[in-house]
Design a protein around this nucleic acid. Structure first.
Length: 550
RNA sequence: GCCCUCGUAGCUCAGAUGGAUAGAGCGUCGGUUUCCUAAACCGCAGGCCACAGGUUCGACUCCUGUCGAGGGUACCA
């Protein structure tokens, strides 16, 4: 049952009966437990409008509430006119029963049932393996996709890549040079080429399969070999992180389908583009909402090749046309400006961009021994995502990347992440899960008959730790809902911390398995099961495993 | 110059829709194990929420300005 909804409805009716037109009731969970379980500011909001003293108005509201409500234990006025409500233990006990019957699905909702969402992320071009710079986006997308599914969306996980541009030419030239070097060690590497060791590996594969027969071949062979190898590597890394995209959408197909040409012609037709210096320019200075920073941008170079903007627009138009209810893109802050141009261009063509939500995350600094780790692609001084996973494990990597709000710069402390100790915040959560699992295993020895069908007497749960733990558990669904609305998985982590904290405290003060007190043991075991279920569901959302032992 | 994000404890960061005495982890110091996992628990210390104005019953939160950090401002993506 949704207690907030229950209280909202109740208060709304009272306000209407007191003469408030179309009241909006805003409830909050007070930080300070002495302020009750749920708090409402309606008396302050509406008292003034009705010309009544807020405290006195609050009094009236409370008296209309009556004193025999099943779920509201008490109500009182505090401060300038807050109405603080205490929820009855009855509610918490019912909720516990609800968690136990819906274990795997507890926390999910049908808010967006029947709706479809497309989430596009990672989208690294196949010019090399994923590096740690891709890590944050990779982990975020995984968690956000999960969050969306938990609120009912059917999610398409999509990867867009560019296999047509300059970077792929560069890859082809780099592979060729390395290949050639196998036979002529003094063969020079071209300027700006990729320096990673993997280029040598690709060249070695070609040498093994074809000997020196490819020396006079054109770029195509090397480009394809490079693309295939890189994609293999990327997919393997994603698999280690438990990520599998449903759709791999490549830029070339936009040329083949004519969508790029179409988009370009539409701009011309509408007078939104013009030619200058041999290039085609988009009138972004007119299209962008913020006129201050607007200059026109090139969409087709003098060479005849489009810049990334044009295919990006064609691609997003295609996504809009596919009819999703929600379209999400995830980018790093280094791409922060371009999406505005893309959206402005689409709007210029009359497309509705209101369903597109762009998530920009700030950059990550990897810190080792208190110093930032420097990366440079040219010198092959690159920290690959695979190496990070080797160093800290997939769970820890996933957790650290998702741990912070996307709006803040992230410091990734490698030493801390590597540490398998109490300092590491991931283990604090996982340990709670492992601890419960252990207790449940032990319970079988003491109470062989205990199991799925055991009906506990929940009324026996009344220590402060037990009640506080039950209260925290009931908040899980609204936490998931709120995290999903803002696409912020880190909120789930903040919440899980609270669960783990409450559990550990409960554990220290309440003996779970006690052969002398069978009924109480049953109840506590059931409480443990509920906590385990909530932790497991939370871990599923943020994308880490729930260990049975540690 | 202009645009985006940020500035909260020694460090790393939470603080949804404005609310009551601003929180957590790490670090420091000190306690807890004959008992279900001590990767745990309990306690002490630590703050002009960058700064200055404004909006109102009320501002860490919203608005304006200043300072500082990161990112962008390509015929790269």
């Amino acid at each position: 049952m949704d207690i907030k909804q229950y209280v909202t409805d109740k208060l709304k009716n009272i306000l209407i009966s007191l003469g408030v037109e179309e009241p909006s009731v805003i409830l909050e969970r007070p930080k300070d437990p002495t302020h009750g379980d749920i708090s409402c500011n309606a008396a302050m909001m509406y008292g003034k409008k009705l010309g009544r003293n807020p405290k006195e108005f609050a009094e009236t509201i409370i008296s209309s509430l009556g004193s025999d409500d099943k779920y509201i234990k008490s109500a009182n006025i505090a401060g300038p006119g807050f109405i603080n409500l205490l929820i009855s233990d009855e509610y918490y006990r019912e909720s516990l029963a609800e968690i136990l019957t819906n274990k795997e699905s507890f926390g999910s909702s049908a808010t967006n049932a029947g709706k479809t969402a497309n989430l596009e992320w990672v989208s690294a071009n196949p010019t090399g393996p994923l590096h740690t710079g891709h890590g944050r986006q990779t982990a975020l997308g995984k968690a956000i996709a999960n969050l969306l599914e938990w609120t009912g969306y059917k999610v398409t996980r999509e990867y867009y890549y560019n296999n047509a541009g300059k970077q792929m030419d560069n890859l082809a030239r780099s592979v060729y040079a390395r290949y050639r070097q196998i036979f002529e060690s003094e063969y020079p590497l071209p300027e700006d080429c990729y320096a990673g060791e993997y280029i040598g590996e690709i060249a070695a594969v070609l040498e093994k399969e074809h000997g020196d027969a490819l020396i006079d071949s054109d770029d195509k062979v090397f480009r394809e070999a490079g693309e295939n190898w890189c994609f293999g590597a990327i997919k393997q890394t994603l698999e280690r992180l438990g990520i599998a995209h449903d759709v791999f959408y490549n830029e070339s197909s936009l040329y083949e389908s004519g969508k790029i040409k179409e988009t370009l012609e539409e701009f011309k037709k509408r007078g939104l583009s013009y030619e200058k210096d041999g290039a085609v320019w988009l009138k972004t200075s007119e299209l962008l909402k913020n006129k201050k920073d607007a200059a026109d941008k090139v969409i087709v170079k003098a060479t005849g090749e489009p810049t990334y903007r044009l295919p990006d627009m064609a691609y997003h138009i295609d996504k809009v046309q596919r009819g999703y209810d929600l379209i999400i893109d995830i980018f790093g802050a280094d791409h922060g400006d371009t999406y505005k141009e893309v959206l402005a261009g689409m709007e210029g063509l009359g497309y509705d961009t209101s369903k597109i939500k762009v998530i920009i995350h700030q950059m990550v600094t990897f810190v080792q021994d208190g110093k930032p780790v420097k990366m440079s692609k040219r010198s092959d001084n690159v920290y690959y995502l695979d190496d990070l996973i080797d160093d800290v494990g997939a769970d820890v990597a996933q957790f650290f990347f998702v741990m912070r709000s996307v709006n803040t710069h992230l410091d990734f402390d490698i030493a801390l992440a590597k540490e398998e100790s109490d300092k590491n915040p991931v283990f604090y959560l996982q340990y709670a899960h492992a601890r419960i699992s252990s207790i449940l295993r032990n319970a079988k020895d003491v109470f062989p008959e205990y199991g799925e069908n055991t009906v506990p007497d929940i009324n026996l749960l009344k220590t402060p730790e037990e009640l506080s733990l039950m209260k925290v558990l009931t908040v899980f669904p609204e936490t998931v809902a709120s995290a999903a609305v803002t696409y912020e998985p880190h909120k789930v982590i903040t919440y899980l911390n609270e669960v783990a904290e409450n559990y550990h405290r409960f554990y220290h003060n309440n003996r779970v398995i006690d052969a002398e007190a069978k009924e109480l043991s049953y109840s506590r075991l059931k409480l443990c099961e509920a906590v385990k279920a909530v932790l497991k569901n939370g871990f599923d959302i943020i994308g880490i495993t729930a260990p049975e032992r540690m």
